[in-house]
Design a protein around this nucleic acid. Structure first.
Length: 644
DNA sequence: AACATCACG
DNA sequence: ACGTACGTGATGTTT
């Protein structure tokens, strides 16, 4: 058999060769493909001078020097990663390549605070730019010691996130990649993660000095490189007006936390446990044996080898075991009651382990509230992510799951939760970016976009659109955002592949500009090697000209999706900054607590309920001007379920 | 540490 | 003829 020669795609020459090389596939990427070289510690051969600074005179001299600078890198060393409880162990500074200073802090917290306060003239000096790697953490630590940081900020982690969001942004990797130098690792100082890991306090002063001052030195050097790179990639404005101003906003939201109704979850847990245990026993009886129901491997063998449910050929995972995911089981649900029971059990156990039982353990002992950590440099599209705990994936889609939202409650009886969410922001973005008049008009007339789409695609009057037609239109609308294919669509609907293909064709006939917009995005990516959002946030697509159709297809879907998802992320970030600044400068009692991609949640003092809602709505709707109006829906209540 | 699964936008 | 929806994080099992 002769294979047809692969179709050749001409690789366009990147406009700026030097710049494109920086993003070549040999560099580390976010998906963990680390092919960069590790460099052995060459510190001994590198001219450098790191000093320990102690005592009144030393501190005074250091401060004098810091105050003379226009730009200083600083870093805090602490007893832990949890910014609410971590204590300062030391601070390091660098304002010149190869030079660094380390100031140890006393264990006694009153003395530590007194020492910290000596640095206020530096930190509050508006004229000095403060450089750091992951500055949000340092801001939170310093805030615990009563220190506010003023002046320009430069976060090397965020800078690199804009320079290439698909890579990783740890200091170690940045240093190896850009400075060809492997820094002293924290593991060498305090040991591997685990029970035996030492505290920073236990590290010998000389060792911690070498480590801490080096980090400040490296960060200072990275900043010099990244400042240039931000300009080259035209992301400096995005950096200075969005990402950096967002840092203190996120720090404040994280520190604020949200109130959790623990007794409610505890009682929910008891009920759920009883129900899921009963169901589990029933499943074992039906199966005729006991096994580990939580093991997909064992479950697959029982279901498909023993019980022969669904006939001979069953879908397997890539490791060769039977696939037992929701999609597979739902398809077989009609065949056997055990499958329905397993699905229900799975849902209950998921809710129980991930939320109902896990969340109460996340309540902070000091504040009595739950503090998530927003990651600003993880999602390649520009979105935030949330962890420890993840408050961006609290259940809502099922009746049972959404009850968990009742556990997120206002601060106390004087407060009410207000939730504000953008209506169809991604579809509005694609309508505006594509200039698709039919879609723009639908939004301008404030129509139900899925119904409106159905009406056009199926050629029926708006009022005569059936449930099913609307549902199909909705699936295609979402498909467009992800980069549809007939196969993908038929997977998501009850339509066959050819019916799906017809539907997509009808869709593009109704929205002709959408089709050309998609092609323009892909062409742009081929020519420039990247796509961008409304604020110029870039995503580089190294595979856009790949000879492998599958790989290339993935990059093409990214070329379509990244500007849409990313522009929506840009817009809500603007709104967050503006709202937060208003809340502070206008002395509101209310606080912004959560962001869930297109939603913001606030703890609103009851006295401010009336006034704050129009403010939030206006700030969000006017955050960015598009050809299409942005619409925000508001809700309020004692808990997040009521408010949503 | 990798995999499978499933929670969200 | 091929295999595909975009972006995340947490959990329990298995290796």
């Amino acid at each position: 058999m002769v294979k047809a020669a692969p179709k050749l795609y001409k690789k366009p020459q990147p406009k700026n060769e030097e710049q494109f090389d920086l993003f070549s596939s040999t560099l580390p990427t976010h998906d963990g493909e680390v092919t960069h070289q590790q460099y052995y510690n060459t510190l001994e051969n590198t001219p450098h001078s790191y000093q320990i600074i102690q005592g009144d005179l030393g501190i005074r001299l250091l401060l004098q020097n810091l105050q003379k600078q226009t730009s200083v890198c600083f870093d805090t060393e602490t007893t832990g990663l949890d910014a609410l409880h971590a204590e300062l162990v030391g601070m390091s500074f660098s304002y010149e390549k190869g030079k660094g200073f380390y100031v140890p802090f006393p264990e006694n917290q009153e003395e530590a605070k007194a020492l910290a306060e000596k640095f206020i003239p530096f930190f509050e000096n508006e004229a000095i730019e403060k450089i750091g790697q992951n500055i949000k953490y340092d801001l939170k630590i310093l805030a615990n010691y009563g220190i506010r940081v003023a002046g320009k900020l430069f976060d090397t982690m965020i800078a690199h996130y804009l320079i290439n969001p698909d890579m990783r942004h740890n200091m170690d990797i940045l240093s190896e990649t850009y400075l060809k130098y492997s820094p002293k690792s924290i593991e060498d100082l305090i040991g591997k993660k685990g029970k035996n890991q030492k505290s920073m306090r236990e590290v010998a002063l000389e060792d911690i000095k070498e480590y801490a001052a080096e980090d400040a030195d490296i960060t200072f050097q990275l900043k010099e490189l990244f400042a240039v790179e931000l300009e080259k990639t035209e992301t400096q404005k995005l950096f200075e007006t969005i990402e950096i101003p967002l840092v203190p906003v996120l720090a404040a939201m994280e520190t604020e936390g949200i109130n959790l109704d623990v007794p409610f979850l505890k009682s929910m847990s008891v009920e759920m446990a009883a129900e899921s245990n009963a169901l589990e026993q029933k499943i074992y009886e039906t199966a005729g044996e006991k096994f580990n129901l939580a093991s997909p491997k064992q479950l697959g063998d029982i279901l498909f080898d023993k019980m022969k449910i669904g006939g001979a050929k069953q879908k397997k995972t890539k490791t060769g075991q039977y696939a037992t995911g929701e999609e597979v089981l739902s398809y077989l649900a009609n065949e056997h009651e055990i499958v329905r029971d397993i699905l229900e059990w799975r849902q209950m156990v998921k809710l129980q382990s991930t939320y109902i039982d896990a969340l109460p353990n996340q309540v902070d002992a000091k504040s009595g509230r739950v503090h998530t950590d927003y990651m600003q440099t993880v999602a390649a599209t520009g979105r935030l992510s949330s962890n420890n705990p993840n408050l961006q994936n609290i259940p809502i889609r099922t009746e049972r799951g959404r009850l968990i939202r009742k556990a997120f409650i206002a601060r106390d009886e004087n407060y009410t939760l207000v939730s504000a969410d953008y209506s169809q922001i991604e579809l509005r973005v694609i309508a505006a970016l594509s200039g698709e008049e039919n879609m723009i008009k639908a939004f301008q007339n404030n129509e139900d976009i899925h119904r409106s789409t159905a009406s056009k695609v199926f050629n029926v009057p708006l009022e005569e659109v059936t449930r099913e037609q609307r549902s199909h239109a909705k699936t295609v609308n979402f498909g467009i955002i992800y980069g549809v294919s007939a196969f993908g669509l038929s997977n998501q609907t009850n339509l066959s592949r050819s019916e799906s293909a017809d539907l997509i064709e009808a869709y593009y006939k109704s929205y002709p500009r959408l089709k050309s917009y998609i092609n323009e995005q892909i062409d742009f990516a081929r020519d420039h090697g990247y796509v961008q959002t409304v604020l110029g946030r870039r995503r580089y697509l190294k595979d856009i000209n790949s000879q492998n159709a599958i790989v290339r297809g993935g990059a093409e879907r990214n070329a379509v999706n990244a500007p849409i998802q990313g522009s929506a992320a840009d817009i809500i970030k603007i709104a967050m900054i503006n709202i937060h600044n208003k809340l502070i400068t206008e002395n509101w009692k209310s606080k912004m607590l959560l962001q869930v991609h297109d939603e913001l949640v606030f703890d609103v003092h009851n006295s401010e309920l009336e006034k704050i809602q129009p403010m939030i709505k206006a700030e969000m709707e006017n955050a960015f001007k598009l050809e299409v109006p942005l619409v925000v829906d508001l809700g309020m209540g004692k808990d997040w379920l009521e408010a949503h």
